[in-house]
Amino acid sequence: MDSPKINPYLVLLIGVISISTSAIFVKLASAPSGIIAFYRLFFTVLFMFPLFIYKYVSELKLISKKDWLFSVISGVFLAFHFILWFESLRFTSVASSTVLVTLQPLFAFIGSYLFFKEVFSGKALLSSVLAIGGSVLISWGDFYVSGTALYGDLLALIACALVTVYFMFGQAVRKRISLITYTFVVYSISTVTLFIYVLLKGESLFPYSSSDWVYFILLAIFPTLLGHSLFNWSLKWLNTSTISMAILLEPVGAGIMAYFLFQETISLTQAAGGLIVISGIMFFLLDEKRMNIKKKPSFKNDLVNNERK
């Protein structure tokens, strides 16, 4: 496999910063959650359409049936991830929902082992436990027990599992399909799925305030085009577990932004949790990088040589 021209870990960091804006824009918007999710993906596809038609549309006929299937599954799971996550915010606290939805390593490790036979060192597993523990510590004071809160927490946890599946299927496809083509196909499928959802829910597509339209567009640009798309780019060079670990930084980034934008206070416990998350992720990435250096390159059944950059 060719070496990337840009450090994938730097790209991953930019992606994490970008997706950290998601909760901020969703909190600022007043539209129903299904509408927010739909327009987030709709504007993303709209912005990508000219470039895709101009340069990449011919690649559609080169996509295999298996990759089409995986792309459809990936797109549908991404759509329902947004639906369940935004719905969870109606029943539980923002902190609880955000932390639970970013606990992707729990599912990524299991899925990567079962489907991709990835083996993780004891140091990597210990680092992940440390990072997850720090993530829970961030919102420890916001967890509370009630029927509706537990229901919201469950929705967030399911949303976490769904986005992990989205990345896992994307990992399989992304190595054979260019970034623009893959993301355009997946986001288009998600948009259609969300459109059907809002119709079934009876939610109106308009009118909404001018500020809501601005937030829809910002959600498309930052957490989606810069966030998820950069993650999809990283899937060529990094595994799902590494990306899932990095996403644990989202509550940290969102908390810092909320501090400056909404004057939300950061408690000593939250600050300590943030430092623990960052430490755990750094240890994990350093161990994962050392493991990659030790690996000998194998070109057996390598399909990546035919990939279009």
Rank of each mutant, 00 (worst) to 15 (best):
M1E: 11
D2Y: 12
N7H: 12
V11K: 14
L12P: 00
L13K: 08
I19W: 10
I24P: 13
G34V: 08
A37Y: 08
A37I: 10
F42Q: 05
T44Y: 13
M48D: 06
S64G: 14
K65T: 09
S71W: 02
S71Q: 04
V72I: 15
S88A: 14
R90M: 15
R90K: 15
F91R: 13
S93L: 12
V94E: 05
V99K: 00
T102L: 03
F109N: 06
I110Y: 13
Y113K: 12
Y113I: 11
F115M: 08
K117N: 12
K117M: 10
F120E: 00
G122T: 11
L126Y: 01
L126P: 04
L130Q: 00
A131M: 01
S146W: 04
L150R: 12
A156K: 08
L157E: 13
L162N: 09
L162A: 10
Y166S: 03
A172T: 08
V173Q: 02
R174P: 04
R176T: 05
F184S: 00
S190Y: 04
S190Q: 04
L205W: 14
Y208D: 11
W213S: 11
W213Y: 15
W213N: 10
F216I: 09
I221K: 07
P223K: 11
L226K: 08
G227Q: 01
S229A: 13
W233T: 09
L238Y: 01
L238T: 00
N239M: 05
T240A: 11
S244R: 06
L249E: 00
L261E: 09
E264I: 10
Q270D: 00
A272R: 03
L275G: 05
S279L: 08
F284E: 00
E288K: 10
N292R: 15
P297Q: 08
